[in-house]
């Protein structure tokens, strides 16, 4: 196990790809700008309303989250065992439970009124 890790460490030398490059940062930056402008225009210009607009806002936000994780925080290049990724997945389960659970419960609360 430790051996595998050490080997991974050793093959760490080509810095360009293990810690990101200017190119990957620029791509990530441009993508996040585009993904900010899309929901902004959709909402402020009134291109979409209601659920369609909410869907666009949520999808672009999640995509931006992924871009920050992959291009800026280098989650993809983590060495095995991927403790960081596992911890993040656990956090996401808790986030979804807390947020969606709260909305779900309060929906019934409104009905009761």
């Amino acid at each position: 196990m430790a051996n595998v890790n050490a080997n991974h460490h050793d093959s760490h030398d080509h810095h360009g790809e293990s810690h990101g490059s200017v190119k990957s940062y620029v791509i990530g930056f441009i993508l996040s700008i585009v993904l900010t402008i899309i929901p902004l225009v959709v909402v402020l210009q009134g291109w979409m309303t209601g659920n369609a607009a909410i869907a666009v806002i949520m999808i672009t936000a999640v995509l931006q989250f992924l871009i920050q994780m992959l291009f800026f925080m280098h989650l993809k290049e983590e060495k095995k065992p991927r403790y960081n990724l596992l911890a993040l997945l656990l956090a996401l389960v808790i986030v979804v439970t807390v947020v969606a659970g709260s909305i779900w419960i309060m929906m019934y609360n409104t009905v009761a009124h």
């Binding site: 990101g20 940062y25 990530g28 930056f29 996040s32 700008i33 900010t36 920050q68 800026f72």
Partner: peptide, 8 residues
């Protein structure tokens, strides 16, 4: 957003 990039 830009500051996140410059931090990178």
């Amino acid at each position: 957003l830009t500051s996140s990039f410059t931090c990178g």
